[in-house]
Amino acid sequence: MKRSKMMELGVGLFMLAGIAGLIFLGLRVSGLNLAGPGAGDTFQLQANFANVGGLKPRARVTMAGVNVGRVVNIELNTEWYDAQVTLELDDKLEGKLSRDTTASILTSGLLGEQYVGLSVGGDPETLSDGDTIRDTQSALVLEELIQQFVSNMVNE
């Protein structure tokens, strides 16, 4: 009887350890923040880019290097044939971003992933949920850069 109690205790500890491990993975490894952005307190903005390069859903959106949101969706806008990117931003920024805010696609490091950087303009009017950022800078595409460089060389 005592042996079976020990066994039950062992299995209980095992299951508990598994669940604790899962919580550890959630909080420490994936940075899941139970109180942070994710549940309700975000707002969305659209931004149209001529070329998104290697930007992917779930990419970071930063402002002055600080994380303020993420990319939730990228799709082709069939009216203008450019890329329509949906950004999900921290609630705190709603009504604080000026209408002429610039969104640009940047690369972290030489080979790093691409992300969206926002920089504020001077317009007194502000963007709110569902608005579109007009001023955008596309991703740098290596082939285009090289092409430009070569044609400049030839012109000289």
Partner: peptide, 14 residues
């Protein structure tokens, strides 16, 4: 830890 938290998604990865 920071880079890890940035890139790991709870649903998609874990």
């Amino acid at each position: 830890w920071g880079n890890m938290q940035e890139s790991v998604d709870f649903i998609a990865d874990i």
